[in-house]
Nucleic acid binder design. Structure first.
Lengths: 135, 135
DNA sequence: CCGAATCCAGCGTGATACTG
DNA sequence: CAGTATCACGCTGGATTCGG
């Protein structure tokens, strides 16, 4: 640490090309991941699967409000990205279990950092929004 | 640490109500922040402002590809959330400087954690997507 | 120089109904 | 139980134009 100055050792602190090319921003892994976890259900599903493996309808009930369609889409995307694994048991009726992959589990930590920041500073943001004149 | 098991001390590790109420998910500070940083330009602007203060057109040139409209919108939102401060110099022509607030600066660290994760595991995600059969 | 206003295309999201 | 298919809608994001 270097005292009061907020210096962050990170890829974000690296020198950026000027101007930042549009192509580079589009293909940026950081942007890619952020947009992914920024969608409506992904993080909640990851967190639930981070606690234990879940069956499809188990998730469906746990996430109250999500449609079958969105749950399926969310899981498919996560599976394609290698964050979630899908295990099918050929029973009748069929049962499918979802769980985090090792890669998916590693996402929990940085995600937690951001989540904790959000919770910690939630009131400051609310206050700022209040001053800004709206909800 | 508890060995091989991936345990994360965080709000994300807390017990979730079952089912997670839709209302709670909508109003969740974590969801709120994630969706914010998940939009197209926010993070890039935050990073640039984290390096130094910028004038409007300076940002506009630095972020090559962003429209005036989106830059304005992004900055306004960040300002309303108390992450960015706007300073107007009543010159002719007018000049406006933007910079991170103290709150905004604190966001850099958790954001960096996620960014570093993205960069570190980018190839694994690409590989998984390749196996999944698409771009 | 720094915006606001308007218009418009695309995508994320959801409701509903249907299937193996 | 675990999905798929179809349709519809709102919101994000972009192009363009106008104003102080």
């Amino acid at each position: 640490m270097s005292g009061t100055h907020t210096h962050v050792p990170s890829v974000l602190a690296a020198d950026l090309p000027m101007p930042v090319p549009a192509s580079e921003h589009e293909a940026c892994p950081v942007t890619d991941v952020l947009r992914r976890v920024g969608d409506k259900w992904t993080v909640l599903v990851i967190v639930l699967l981070g606690q234990r493996r879940h069956r499809f309808n188990e998730l469906h009930r746990a996430v109250d409000g999500i449609s079958q369609r969105m749950l399926t889409r969310t899981l498919r995307t996560l599976e394609q990205d290698g964050l979630v694994e899908r295990e099918v048991h050929p029973t009748t009726p069929p049962s499918v279990e979802y769980g985090l992959t090792r890669l998916g589990a590693t996402l929990l930590q940085p995600l937690s950092a951001l989540a904790d920041w959000a919770v910690t500073h939630h009131d400051e943001i609310s206050a700022a929004r209040g001053r800004a004149g709206g909800s």
